[in-house]
């Protein structure tokens, strides 16, 4: 992980305007009290932001809202200059759910190639004919996560750690401007965790992707991220998170 940290962060002076701004945003489900209220938050290109908080506080709900899967109930969201998340350009948001969102009956290659779908033309999508660049990007991403020998294996035959690497490889092909990763480092051994973390940092540093990473290990986030924010008492806190002071389990 320390090796990963050595990748330098891009200078934010190049473009200091945030790609994502939340102003007084409230999040919750219809007919229920708000889960999170008064969220003020900014994220910049190339930033790696850790998101911590106790279980059930609303981390996944916040991520799903930022992915455009749930509407916010109050406040304003501005993303890439648009005031509606669903207006964001196709492929500009990447989301790795807790359960990774892979197609289990298909191969590693197929799943990683799915990251190229937003860039595919209508004809390519209709005929299932990826361009040579898409195939090359897929191969490179699979090599980057050390899964080249598993390229033709179905997802259902991979271990949990290998599946997480596939989900990250899909994001490497997609190269989103905002990547929302929900606990994609959880339950991984040290070596796999390092491979995944290195690739997430690579996306941020080389492609300017803003990565928002949910994790239960404050120590890991502190090492990996440019800053860590915490969901506490129904809102977001950017000061030293409480959970940072908890012993690492």
């Amino acid at each position: 992980m320390s090796e990963s940290k050595s990748i330098p962060a891009p200078s934010q002076s190049e473009d200091s305007s945030p790609i994502l701004t939340l102003s007084g945003v409230s999040i919750g489900f219809p007919g229920e009290p708000h889960l999170l209220t008064g969220i003020d938050f900014e994220a910049h290109a190339g930033e790696v932001i850790g998101l911590v908080g106790v279980s059930g506080i609303g981390k996944t709900t916040l991520l799903r809202t930022l992915a455009g899967l749930l509407p916010h109930t109050a406040g304003e969201v501005e993303i890439f200059g648009f005031d509606d998340i669903r207006s964001a350009p196709r492929g500009s948001i990447g989301y790795i759910p807790q359960r990774l969102g892979l197609v289990h009956h298909q191969t590693v290659g197929y799943n990683v190639l799915m990251g190229a779908l937003p860039k595919a033309t209508r004809l390519q999508t209709l005929l299932s004919l990826p361009s040579s660049e898409m195939r090359e990007a897929t191969r490179s991403a699979i090599v980057a996560v050390d899964l080249e020998e598993k390229m033709l294996d179905p997802i259902s035959q991979l271990s949990g750690g290998q599946q997480r690497r596939v989900a990250v490889a899909r994001s490497l092909v997609q190269k989103p401007r905002l990547l929302l990763a929900d606990e994609c480092l959880g339950e991984l051994d040290m070596a796999t965790s390092e491979v995944v973390a290195k690739q997430l940092l690579h996306l941020a540093r080389e492609h300017g992707t803003c990565v928002i990473l949910v994790d239960h290990s404050p120590v890991r986030l502190k090492v990996l991220c440019d800053r860590v924010v915490e969901l506490r008492q129904g809102t977001i806190r950017e000061d030293e998170p409480d959970t940072m002071r908890l012993p690492m389990v």
Partner: peptide, 29 residues
């Protein structure tokens, strides 16, 4: 499962594309 579909929706893919490339292969068996 909702997760593959949500990952695809977040990418901004259309419903027919999600059905063809995510839902149908996942339910293929």
């Amino acid at each position: 499962g909702k997760h593959p579909l949500e990952a695809a929706r977040a990418m901004g893919l259309s419903r027919p594309v999600i059905a063809r490339y995510f839902a149908i292969p996942e339910a293929s068996n």
